[in-house]
């Protein structure tokens, strides 16, 4: 069971990344635009209830790609709306994604203070 979960994570995560690669090579979209597209797509698919099914099947393969970040934001917004009403639309997303955002900022700061850009050859 655990093994199958890992396999599904590999397949689903791989496919989502492969879609990203086709977009980069075929459309000349910059990485920043790809990331925006993916997070927004995840949020919308989450709202439509589709991403939940992908996540149930793919586990980390669906939550680790940035589409999963969008899905987390939407899920949080829905949960808080259920609990607090309209205000929840504003508090829920960031609350659900807080760990990721805070970690990115904090570790990002620490690492950039501690390390240096290296030249490419």
């Amino acid at each position: 069971m655990m093994f199958m979960k890992v396999l599904y994570a590999f397949l689903v995560g791989g496919i989502i990344c492969a879609i990203g690669q086709v977009l980069i090579d075929k459309t000349k979209l910059t990485p920043a635009r790809i990331l925006v597209l993916f997070v927004t797509t995840g949020a919308v698919l989450g709202a439509l209830g589709i991403y939940e099914k992908i996540a149930d099947f793919g586990g980390a393969g669906a939550t680790i790609p940035l589409t999963g970040f969008g899905y987390t934001l939407t899920r949080g917004a829905f949960r808080d709306v259920d609990q607090y009403g309209l205000l929840g639309a504003f508090t829920g997303g960031v609350r659900a994604a807080a760990a990721g955002i805070a970690a990115a900022i904090f570790f990002g700061y620490l690492v950039s203070v501690a390390s240096k850009s290296k030249a490419k050859r």
């Binding site: 990344c17 570790f107 990002g108």
Partner: peptide, 29 residues
């Protein structure tokens, strides 16, 4: 090597935060 394979996962999000921060450290904290 991996292109979107390492851009799309959340580790790529971290990379996109750290890399400009490192690059522009020369312009102050």
């Amino acid at each position: 090597f991996a292109g979107a394979g390492s851009i799309v996962p959340i580790t790529g999000f971290a990379n996109s935060i750290v890399s400009p921060a490192m690059e522009f450290k020369s312009e102050g904290y």
